[in-house]
Simulated assay, not measured.
Amino acid sequence: MNDKHQELIPTPENYSLLTDLYQLTMTACYSGEGLAQKPASFELFARRLPNGFGYLIAMGLAQVLDYLEQFRFSPQALEALQQTEIFQGAPEQFWSLLAEGSFTGDVWAVPEGTAIFANEPLLRVDAPLWQAQIVETYLLNTINYQTLIATKAARLRDVAGAEASLLEFGTRRAFSPQASLWAARAAIAAGLDGTSNVLAAVKLGCQPKGTMAHALVMAITAVSGSEHDAF
């Protein structure tokens, strides 16, 4: 396997590059126009919700704060950007911002697990324009996915009632191994009783939950000759 595949795992050292290209091209433009350090306020909210879908459960703030605390452009990240040759016309102030900058803004957010309705902000970032712009992509990715899972889990609990046992088994269909951990956390926080993801359960301090796969029945059937005997 190509070693480059191993580099597709995000780490704090390359967090700053985990953004959309246009966030950086806009930052270059802001730098050239003298706007980069102007104060800005970005809010994350849903304009409307589907019929019968009355609320969202906010989730993902912990990962947002971790990202912002570690946000900076390493020399390696800057070199990688320069090698793209996309920013050859960018002003020198652009490179200075990235080389010297870190997140210096403020974050206002509802606590994780809070029910949110249409046009109510889950989160607001007050920061210099260039910072608020670049971090937007990561914040949307983190908040949107975990809020989706938490909202689904809460609605399942609403329908099933307090006495039902509800478990999260989504690891094999999550977007990525990292997403599976975030999904397990969001589901449990929003009301599910446990997760089949062993690593997530260990990290969250709870007992992993599970049953068995049909492979066990098939294997015993192959030996015993009878599915009835396998059961």
Rank of each mutant, 00 (worst) to 15 (best):
Q76N: 03
I86W: 12
Q76M: 04
P75S: 03
E100S: 06
A153Y: 07
V135Y: 06
T151N: 13
V135L: 05
F73N: 10
P128Q: 10
A154C: 08
A154H: 09
I116P: 00
L97D: 09
E92F: 02
L98T: 14
L68W: 03
Y138M: 15
I134F: 08
Q93Y: 03
Y67F: 14
V110D: 05
E100C: 05
D106M: 13
A115D: 13
A150I: 04
P121W: 09
A150P: 09
A115S: 14
L148N: 07
T137F: 06
V110C: 11
F73P: 01
T84I: 11
E100F: 01
P121Y: 06
R124D: 05
A80H: 06
T114G: 04
N119T: 09
A115P: 15
L81F: 10
N144A: 11
I134E: 14
F94V: 11
L97A: 04
G101H: 03
L139V: 13
G101N: 14
Y145I: 00
Q88I: 06
R72V: 01
T104W: 13
G101E: 10
G89H: 10
L129I: 05
R124C: 14
A115M: 13
T84R: 12
W95F: 10
Q133N: 14
A77N: 15
A132H: 05
Q70C: 11
G101C: 00
V64F: 03
A77I: 10
G105C: 05
D66T: 09
F71L: 13
L156I: 06
G89C: 01
L148C: 11
T147L: 08
L139D: 01
N144R: 12
P121Q: 06
L81E: 01
I149E: 03
Q83V: 02
A153V: 04
Q76K: 03
Q93H: 02
G105K: 02
T137W: 06
P91L: 11
G101F: 10
Q82S: 15
Q133A: 08
S96C: 09
L98F: 12
T142S: 14
L140P: 04
L68D: 04
A153Q: 03
E79V: 06
G105M: 08
P91V: 08
P121L: 09
F117D: 08
Q88C: 14
Q88P: 00
I116A: 07
D158Y: 02
F94P: 01
F71C: 10
Y138C: 08
A127W: 08
I143R: 02
Q133T: 15
N119V: 07
F94R: 11
I86H: 07
P121K: 09
T104V: 15
L129E: 02
A150M: 04
L98D: 11
R157C: 02
V64P: 01
F87N: 04
W108K: 12
V64E: 00
D106A: 15
T114V: 05
Q146R: 12
L97P: 09
P128T: 12
A118H: 12
Y145T: 06
Y145S: 08
A77P: 07
W130V: 07
R72H: 15
L97Q: 05
L81G: 04
I143F: 11
N119F: 04
P128R: 06
E120C: 00
S74M: 05
L156Q: 11
Q146K: 05
L129P: 08
E120A: 06
W95C: 07
A90N: 04
Y67G: 05
V110G: 09
T84V: 10
A77V: 02
A115F: 04
